[in-house]
């Protein structure tokens, strides 16, 4: 464990050096995500100039859900961005060999290699929205709701990570799986708004199949209403752990069928 931590620190330091070297790049990335977020919020704002409530939620409550959903997303983006590259080109070009010949776990190595600071855009927006929306959203702030919703965040991020591990692992069989990652990851759009607006089949889909609803709506519903912690918070933990186990299984199976590229 100590060794792993040490390696992680070394790799992260490498990343920070690169960051210092290409400061303009970092700024472009972070500002891009920030603007992307700002537009999402402008959208909600424009809707609420016309209606007082959306599916029974006020403006501040919708912002709170939106903000909460961005924090696990940003956390995953910060730590595991390299999985995209596995799906898009690392396997296809045969570069995955590198991870297999080193005496550390390949999945850990892939993840530790990149520290994606662009994610600051999502994290900052998420936190600012929570702070802005919290006073007027009618939150039930008790010791329990605060502790449980903080606990939910890393597990919610694990849902993102597991889905990325799973879909990027398809590249071991298909050479390139970027488009599958893109498709599955793209469904996180569903996590930004209350699931009650979706029709029944969609609701089941985003709760149990591609469970993005657990990364935003359910945990925020708990802190908004203090209802059903077993499902709203327990669900996040159970779903993420199960999904993570399945994704590791697929990943390991994938590695055993990995064939390097010719060249």
């Amino acid at each position: 464990m100590r060794r792993i931590w040490k390696i992680y620190k070394l790799l992260a330091a490498q990343n920070l050096k690169r960051l210092m070297e290409y400061r303009a790049d970092f700024l472009t990335g972070a500002i891009s995500f920030l603007i992307d977020q700002a537009i999402g919020i402008a959208f909600i704002f424009i809707i609420f100039t016309q209606i007082p409530q959306l599916a029974g939620f006020t403006f501040e409550q919708i912002l709170f859900i939106y903000g909460f959903s961005q924090i696990p997303k940003g956390l995953d983006h910060l730590l595991t961005d390299n999985l995209w590259c596995v799906g898009y080109f690392i396997v296809r070009k045969g570069d995955f060999d590198k991870y297999l010949i080193r005496p550390i776990n390949p999945l850990f190595h892939v993840i530790a290699e990149t520290f994606q600071v662009d994610a600051i855009g999502e994290l900052v927006v998420g936190i600012v929205l929570l702070i802005y929306a919290a006073p007027n959203a009618g939150l039930h702030i008790t010791v329990w709701t605060v502790i449980l919703s903080i606990i939910a965040v890393p597990f919610a991020a694990l849902i993102y990570t597991s889905l990325k591990i799973m879909t990027s692992a398809f590249a071991f069989w298909m050479k390139s799986s970027g488009f599958i990652i893109q498709m599955v990851y793209g469904m996180n759009e569903f996590s930004k708004y209350p699931v009650t607006i979706y029709s029944f089949p969609v609701r089941i889909f985003v709760t149990y199949i591609i469970p993005f609803a657990f990364t935003g709506y359910y945990p925020s519903l708990y802190i908004l209403t203090e209802s059903d912690p077993l499902f709203n918070i327990g669900g996040v933990i159970v779903v993420s752990v199960v999904l993570f186990a399945v994704s590791l299984l697929i990943w390991n199976k994938g590695i055993s069928s990995y064939e390097s590229a010719g060249a």
Binding site: Y22, S32, D118
Partner: peptide
């Protein structure tokens, strides 16, 4: 001027 084409791409598409 800028190397982060990917960031520019995101920026361009969202704008």
């Amino acid at each position: 001027y800028v190397k982060n084409l990917w960031g520019i791409g995101i920026l361009k598409n969202s704008i």
